[in-house]
Simulated assay, not measured.
Amino acid sequence: MDLPDPQFSEFVTAFLKDRGLPVEDLQFHSLPSDGSKRLFWRLSPQSDTSFVAMENTPTDDFSKRENVAYLMIGRHLFQKDLPVPEIHHFDLANGWFILDDFGDASLQESALPKERRISLYESAIEILFRIQTEGVEGFNTEWCCQTERYDQYVMQRYEANYFRDAFLHKYLGLKKDWPELENPFNHLAATASRADNQFFLHRDFQSRNIMVSAGKIGILDWQGGRLGPLAYDLASLLIDPYTGLSSSERDEIYQHYLRFLNKYDPRQVEPFRKYFPYLAVQRNLQILGAFSFLSKMRGKTFFEDYISPALKSLRHLLEDLKDPQLSPLKEAVHS
């Protein structure tokens, strides 16, 4: 079990004492961090009270920006009465945070019983739409830790090239250079970037970042938030390989989202339908790049189990899209 350093323990203890909570025999229970370098612990000073403590040591410029994004975006969403944990205490200089505990049950585990699945996803969709449309109000792009907007630069560098380098080359052991993919990647990003990107984008809206407690939905890991298109986060949820939704389940959830969108602004529905498949391919490239990098370079072999279903998903998306300009990419993933 990873134990926090003494200074962090003192930070936590001081917070609990200020709250009038007992600190005798306090234990730090390590929590999984998935693909992150951050460290998490559960604190239970008494039987009916628990918090999560997070440490993200700011060792470089990006981690400093990431901590600011975590704080500012988290506060922003919480103030909008959106279901994210309240950040009770923080120390940006050290990368320390204490926040509400949303429990252990993610949507991944909660959606295993198929009879509950659709209702849980419908609840998640309602929260997603609120985050996208309400979260953009008053959102300050200076809080963003990577880019202010999900744009062609992000699509190329952090998704298409990530897929090429981490999955095709380093994970599969195929060639390093893929000049034949340059035009398909450019076409994919150019088309996907035509979607209206004036909404709040979570950018990792998948079942392990969605918590379920007493039937209520809570959202984690918002620090990658920025402006972006509506379809990306929905695609993230639908093609998420952790839950393995069937095609009929995906379609039912997709239609449920469209009903929200139609009520919000009927003019958005047709462009949403048009660009959704391209944004879904972009997200799928990111998934394969990330899972390959994390399993191969970080030794987090848990992710390797999901590479095969993610590849299958990408193949299906490209088949359904039937865009001849993406044929070289289609051939690469069938080789």
Rank of each mutant, 00 (worst) to 15 (best):
I219P: 04
Y306W: 09
G20S: 07
T141I: 13
I118F: 13
P328V: 00
R208L: 09
S313R: 09
L230H: 05
M297F: 14
E159S: 06
G135V: 03
F205W: 03
L168Y: 06
L82F: 00
A160T: 10
A231T: 10
P229G: 06
Q206E: 10
P241G: 04
T147F: 12
R267V: 15
I219F: 02
D60S: 02
G103N: 05
E331W: 08
G299C: 00
K312P: 08
H88F: 11
F129H: 12
K216V: 10
Y306K: 05
E249S: 07
E270V: 13
L112V: 15
R42I: 01
L26P: 05
D240K: 01
L21N: 08
Q282Y: 01
R250D: 01
K17S: 14
H89C: 12
F129V: 03
W96T: 01
V269P: 01
S47H: 14
L77K: 04
S248V: 13
S335D: 15
Q152E: 11
S295D: 01
Q152P: 01
F97D: 03
F272L: 08
D25W: 10
I210V: 08
Q268P: 10
T49I: 14
P277L: 03
S248L: 13
L112E: 14
R273T: 05
K300C: 05
A111D: 00
D81T: 13
R226H: 09
F199K: 09
L82P: 02
Y306I: 05
Q206S: 10
K80N: 11
D196W: 08
I98Q: 01
K80V: 07
F28G: 03
K170A: 13
P324T: 01
Q27F: 13
D233W: 01
L82C: 08
F28K: 04
N140W: 06
E122P: 07
Y275H: 10
E109K: 15
G224P: 03
G224L: 04
E180A: 11
L238A: 02
Y242A: 05
V333S: 06
A160C: 13
V269E: 00
E122F: 12
E182L: 12
S50R: 05
R157V: 15
Y257D: 07
I73G: 09
V212S: 04
D60P: 02
C144P: 00
G173I: 05
L238M: 02
E180F: 02
L99Q: 15
S292K: 04
A124K: 02
V154Q: 11
D81A: 14
E331S: 10
T141M: 12
P58T: 00
I239S: 04
R75S: 14
A69C: 08
I98G: 00
Y232H: 08
E86P: 12
K322C: 12
R208A: 08
E137N: 15
F205A: 08
G173V: 07
W96V: 02
K37L: 15
S236H: 03
H169D: 05
A235P: 06
Q325R: 14
Y153W: 12
E137R: 15
E66N: 13
F199M: 08
N197R: 15
E126Q: 13
D81M: 12
E137I: 15
Y257I: 08
Q108L: 14
H89W: 11
D240V: 02
S308Y: 12
P309S: 02
R259F: 07
E270F: 10
D18F: 12
E109W: 13
H89R: 11
L181M: 02
Y162Q: 09
L71T: 01
D177K: 14
R298T: 06
Y257W: 09
